[in-house]
């Protein structure tokens, strides 16, 4: 879970500001993940591995991505889960 800052615990006004900032950021991120549905995504993984896949969905804890047609160095895997810990970054076009 996400820690709230010590300052916010003491100051209700700052707590509200922090909650508002967190909501705005999270909503925007969730919309970004939702917009990726069925899009071609390029993943840059640790150990210099690059993958392309069709994005399916993410779990809400951002631990796993569910993808289809994953192009791996050793062939195509029809349905796959990618561990977010293995990923450095990913790219898609809008």
């Amino acid at each position: 879970s996400i820690p709230t800052s010590a300052a916010s615990e003491a100051d209700p006004e700052q707590l509200q500001q922090e909650q508002h900032a967190r909501s705005v950021l999270r909503e925007s991120f969730l919309r970004c993940l939702l917009s990726m549905n069925s899009k071609k995504v390029q993943f840059h993984m640790h150990e210099k591995v690059k993958l392309e896949a069709t994005f399916g969905a993410s779990d809400i804890d951002v631990l796993n991505f569910q993808v289809s047609d994953l192009h791996t160095p050793i062939g195509v895997q029809k349905e796959a889960l990618i561990r977010c810990q293995d990923v450095i970054s990913f790219t898609f076009d809008v």
Partner: peptide
Amino acid sequence: LTVDPVSASLV
């Protein structure tokens, strides 16, 4: 665009 408060990922 945003930073995910759960994973600290940047968009």
